[in-house]
Structure formats: structure tokens, C-alpha cells
């Protein structure tokens, strides 16, 4: 009798304490990102899709690191609907210390990005331009976070660029035409502590891209990988790593022995996923 009273008393106590626990510490709210219903649209502008969601998921996965990183200047190349840059601005909003640039080659996309930002009460400086043309001289070395969802779909070369919606996906041979133009520009714009989040398709040969970036002194990490019915997506984060740069210099003289931490793991992950070889 006493025991059963005691146990029901314990249950009530547990429920009560749980209740007060949640009153004092509410379950952690999901970080705010752009809401689809507030994302503007236009027939000539690419709508948020699996690739956009993968990129924003990568930013969310790195949310705490991004807040600790305290980026002063963030930039998106090819902002399309504005879903990604708006989400980044919302993720970092509590800091109130970051400024945003976004570009797109499609004037309709830049206007739609503007509307999406405005609908969420955040701001980015917008430019209609090809990748970062016009900014490359003066913004060099100032960008702390860059995000890119490039046109990565393998297409005939003549479909690349242009002023319509095809510019959002048409990537030329192996989907690499625009990616290969963006990478050196990103290298030029990124600050010493800069991070680049970029989305690739397995068909783009991300392993080869990582090796190429490694030659420029960048470490790389897969933040999100996702296979949809149609495509296998990777969001890869690049950052400058002095070990790699030094090793790169030594490697020229002494051939390859020893990889920095995590590098072999990344390569094994990528070679497993990269079915184009």
C-alpha cells in the first residue's frame, strides 16, 4: 500500500519536474531558415529544390561553428530565389554583425532574391553580375563565408550562361564549366579565415575538385551528402589550411608521404561516392 502510494507519488513528481523543466528550459527551437511560403518566384527563376535544401541543411549543421566564426562579410554567388542567402542571414541573425552580398547573372533572380530577403526582414547587397564581376578587385580577401549552388548539371556547352532560367542549372561538360570558373574567383575573394560551402553532383567529380583545391592550400570536408532519385548531391566545405599549404610545398620536393588528418577519410568517402571514374 505504502509502496504503491509512494510510486504514484514518484510518477507525479517526475511529471511535475519534467513540466517545470520544460517551462524553465523550453525544447530548443529549431533555427530559423527561410520559409517556402515567403520565398518569391518568377517563371524565369529556379525555385528552391533538393539541392537548395541540401545547402541550407549544411549551413544548419554548421550553425554553431558559423556563429563562432563570426563572419563579417558573407556572400552567395548565384542566389536564384534567395532561399539560401536568406536562410544564412536568418541563421546568423542573432549576431547582428554580418553583412551579406548576393549575385546572380539573371536579373529576374536578383529581384526575386530581393523580395525573398525583404519578406523575411533581412538584407543583402545585391548585384546583377556574372559570378562576382566588378567585385573581384576590391572585395578580394574579405569574404569570410561564401555559399554557392552552382549550375552543375552536365549539358551541351552552348546551354551554359545566357540570361534565362537555364543559367541556373546548365553546367556544360560534366557540369564543370561554371564550377571551374567560380573556384578561382572564390579563392581570390575568401579571407584568410574564409569558408566556402559549395554543392556538387557526383558527376562533377568532387574528388578531383578537392584535389585541385588542395593544391591551392584548402582542406575540404563533406558536410552533407544526399542521394535523391535523380542525383547524388554533396555539400563540401573548403577552408585554408596552413598544414596542407606547407605539406603541398614539401610534397613538391619530397613526394607524397603522410596526409593531414581526415584527408584520407574524405578521399575514401568521395571515391566511393564518385561513380564517374
Amino acid at each position: 500500500m505504502l509502496a504503491s502510494n509512494l510510486s504514484s507519488y514518484m510518477v507525479i513528481l517526475a511529471v511535475l519536474s519534467l513540466f517545470s523543466y520544460f517551462t524553465i528550459f523550453p525544447p530548443k527551437m529549431a533555427s530559423r531558415i527561410a520559409q517556402i511560403r515567403l520565398v518569391s518566384s518568377h517563371p524565369q527563376v529556379y525555385e528552391p529544390c533538393d539541392d537548395s535544401f541540401a545547402l541550407v541543411d549544411a549551413l544548419l549543421a554548421d550553425r554553431k561553428k558559423l556563429l563562432d566564426h563570426r563572419p563579417a562579410i558573407c556572400m552567395e554567388v548565384g542566389s536564384g530565389s534567395g532561399y539560401v542567402i536568406t536562410s544564412l542571414a536568418l541563421i546568423l541573425q542573432e549576431m547582428k554583425t554580418s553583412y551579406y552580398f548576393a549575385t546572380d547573372i539573371n536579373p529576374h533572380a536578383v529581384r526575386v532574391t530581393h523580395e525573398t530577403l525583404e519578406a523575411h526582414g533581412v538584407h543583402a547587397e545585391l548585384l546583377t553580375t556574372n559570378i562576382a564581376a566588378g567585385l573581384e578587385k576590391r572585395l578580394a580577401g574579405l569574404v569570410d563565408v561564401m555559399v554557392v549552388n552552382p549550375p552543375y548539371v552536365p549539358t551541351p556547352e552552348e546551354e551554359v550562361g545566357g540570361d534565362g532560367i537555364a543559367a541556373a542549372w546548365a553546367g556544360g561538360e560534366n557540369g564543370r564549366s561554371v564550377i571551374d570558373k567560380i573556384l578561382p574567383i572564390a579563392d581570390n575573394l575568401l579571407s584568410e579565415k574564409g569558408w566556402l560551402y559549395m554543392l556538387f553532383l557526383a558527376a562533377n567529380d568532387p574528388l578531383q575538385i578537392c584535389l585541385q583545391m588542395r593544391d591551392k592550400g584548402y582542406a575540404a570536408k563533406i558536410v552533407v551528402q544526399r542521394a535523391t532519385e535523380e542525383e547524388s548531391l554533396h555539400v563540401i566545405k573548403f577552408w585554408r589550411d596552413s598544414d596542407i599549404r606547407m605539406e603541398g610545398n614539401e610534397a613538391v620536393a619530397t613526394a607524397k608521404n603522410g596526409s593531414p588528418r581526415g584527408w584520407e577519410f574524405l578521399l575514401s568517402q568521395l571515391s566511393r561516392l564518385s561513380f564517374r571514374r
Binding site: H114, L127, T128
Partner: peptide
């Protein structure tokens, strides 16, 4: 001249 409309410069060449 690179036009600026609705606060957005158009730098396309």
C-alpha cells in the same frame, strides 16, 4: 553607365 534600379546595380557586360 551601369544602371542601378530598385537598389540593384547591373554590372553585366
Amino acid at each position: 553607365r551601369f544602371p542601378v534600379n530598385k537598389g540593384i546595380p547591373n554590372m553585366l557586360l
